[in-house]
Each structure stands twice: as structure tokens, then as C-alpha cells.
Amino acid sequence: MDLKLEVVVLPVSDVDRAKAFYEALGFRLDLDRPVSEKWRAVHFTPPRSECSVMFGTGLTAAEPGSAQGLYLVVPDIEEARADLAGRGIDVSEVFHDAGGLLYHGHEAGDIVHDGGQEQERLAGPHPERASYGSFATFSDPDGNGWVLQEVTQRAPGR
């Protein structure tokens, strides 16, 4: 079976404010369709992505800002972070996890336990620039959380 994730619905409180944010982020506006006072769909696609995001009025009952861990894969984490900062996006500094390759949502200096393994967020890119190992984070105006992840070489099967 051929299955592809095409759209992720984001819960937002102010559609026009979210639209301005995603335009500033550099996402391509694909659709802005107001049907009534109770229903409007706004659809954006990140550059070179096959998956898009959609938000609006009447699309979801989820709490605004409740979407977390939305990954944007980039080939150069420092270049991507600088680009977003240059667009006025409040993006974290680049960091990596000391004990693993997956960002666990913790803050700098926090130590969390994941399956018995300690994970600690450390400043800067992964020391060996290991693919999947360097991150930066930002949020949209409602608090929907995005993670930039540097991937220079895909895992087998990807």
C-alpha cells in the first residue's frame, strides 16, 4: 500500500496572525479559503516538502498551541537557524542530546531518563555532526512547537 502523510492540521486561535507567521517563515501559501464565518481553511507547504500544514476556523477542536514535535529536516542546521532568525523568527540556539540522537523536548541543563538512558541537552551541534543529531526549536504564535533537525545522510530505507 502506498501511504503518504500529506497534511498536518495545526490548532490556532488567530488565523490571520498564524498566516502572517507562516508567510514570514517562508512557507508557500497554497490556499486561503473562507467559506463562512465558521469555516476557513489556510494551507501552507514548507519549501521542498511533500507534507503541508493547514489551519483555520472550524477545522479542529484541538486546543491552540497543542501541536508539538513538528519536525522540519534540514541539511545544515546552522544555516537553517540563521535563515529563520533573519526572517524574525524566535528560534533557539543549535543544540544536541548528549546521550542520543532524538530530541526529547527538554530544556538546556535538564536531564531526563528515557528507557534508563540519560538524555541531556547540550549547546551546539552534535560534535561529530552526526546525521539526525543536531536541533533547534521554535514555536508559532500559539505555541505549536517546531523542531529543526539536521539530516545529512538518511537512515537505510528512508
Rank of each mutant, 00 (worst) to 15 (best):
L5I: 14
L5R: 04
V9G: 01
V9K: 11
V12T: 13
D14F: 11
R17L: 14
A18D: 06
K19G: 08
A20D: 15
E23Y: 04
G26C: 11
F27Y: 15
F27N: 01
L31P: 00
D32W: 09
D32E: 15
R33P: 00
R33A: 14
R33L: 15
P34G: 03
P34V: 13
V35G: 01
E37W: 04
V42K: 02
P46T: 11
P47A: 12
R48G: 00
E50F: 13
C51K: 06
M54E: 14
F55G: 03
T57M: 03
L59M: 14
T60M: 10
P64D: 05
G65N: 06
S66N: 07
S66T: 13
S66M: 08
S66L: 12
A67I: 04
G69T: 03
G69K: 01
L70G: 00
L70R: 01
Y71M: 09
V73S: 11
P75I: 07
D76S: 05
E78I: 04
E79Q: 12
A82G: 13
D83M: 12
I89N: 02
D90V: 14
S92M: 09
F95I: 05
H96L: 07
H96S: 08
G100S: 07
G100E: 07
L101N: 08
L101Y: 09
L101M: 15
G105S: 06
G109D: 13
V112H: 02
V112D: 05
V112W: 05
H113C: 01
D114I: 15
G115S: 10
G116H: 11
E118Q: 14
Q119F: 12
E120D: 00
L122Y: 02
P125M: 01
P127Y: 12
E128A: 14
A130M: 14
G133R: 04
G133A: 15
G133Y: 09
A136Q: 05
D140H: 05
W146H: 09
E150S: 05
V151N: 01
T152F: 03
T152V: 13
R154K: 04
R154G: 00
A155P: 00
G157C: 05
R158K: 02
